Amino acid sequence: MKRTPAIKRTVAMSALCGLVLFAAACSDNDTDNANSTDASASSTREIASSVASEVQGSASAAASSVKATASAAVGNVQDTGYLQALESQNISFGSTEDQVAAARTACDELSGDTSLDATRVKIAETTGLDDAQSRTLINIAVPIYCTTNVGKLTVN
């Protein structure tokens, strides 16, 4: 597991603390250096703002990465379960990518208000499966990939 964002945050926060301490030291009732102190304080604020933006950007990027990884993991679990279910029913055609694509096609068709029978025919035509195998593929795919269409499975 990468710890680069944590290290960057630690370094950025250390730099920020150093700058704040430096600015405080420069402003100790030194009226001769008032302009210099104001400039240092302004510079410190700019640097602190820049560091805060960088830390926020790193955190946002890390969150996006975690979300993408989690999404991919869920997809892999779905695909694995689906492919195992097809195999248990002795349904095989094309590559595993073709088999997953057929499941997604079934879901797209049913989501687009295509009838279950028309979806079965399309799956049979695109996969080379017979009618019963196509229906079984749909019955396996829908609960895994598009649960909102489960009610449509009882129509035929």
Rank of each mutant, 00 (worst) to 15 (best):
T69S: 15
A68F: 02
N76G: 15
Q78S: 10
K67T: 12
S88F: 03
A63L: 12
Q89T: 08
A59T: 09
S64Y: 06
V66G: 09
V74R: 10
S42Y: 05
F93P: 05
V51R: 02
A48N: 02
N35C: 03
G94I: 00
Q84G: 09
T37P: 01
S40P: 01
S43C: 03
Q56V: 07
G75C: 08
S43F: 09
G75M: 09
A34Q: 08
K67N: 11
A73S: 14
A70E: 11
T80M: 10
A52D: 01
S58G: 04
V77F: 08
S92H: 13
G81E: 09
Q89Y: 11
N35I: 10
A68T: 12
A41D: 03
A73W: 06
I91W: 05
T37H: 00
N33A: 14
V66Q: 15
S53N: 14
T80V: 07
N35Y: 10
G81Y: 06
V66I: 12
D79F: 02
T44S: 02
S60P: 01
T80A: 15
G75E: 13
G94P: 01
V66P: 04
S40T: 14
A63F: 09
L86N: 07
S42T: 12
F93A: 06
A63R: 13
N35E: 13
S64G: 09
L86D: 07
Q56A: 14
A73M: 10
S92N: 14
T37L: 01
A52S: 10
S71D: 12
G75H: 10
K67G: 03
V55R: 00
Y82H: 07
R45H: 05
S40L: 13
Q84F: 05
A52V: 02
S49A: 10
E46W: 04
D79L: 03
L86W: 07
S53H: 10
S71L: 12
N33R: 13
E46S: 13
I47Y: 02
S40V: 13
V55K: 00
E87A: 15
G57M: 02
I47T: 07
A39W: 02
S49N: 11
S53C: 04
Y82Q: 08
S42A: 10
Y82F: 15
G81T: 09
A85S: 14
N90F: 05
A59G: 04
V55T: 01
D79E: 15
E54K: 13
N90E: 12
K67F: 07
A85L: 09
N33W: 06
E46F: 05
S50A: 10
N33P: 00
V51Q: 02
T69A: 15
A70Q: 12
A39L: 04
K67R: 15
Y82A: 06
S36M: 12
A34L: 13
V51W: 00
Q56N: 11
T69K: 15
T69H: 11
A68L: 06
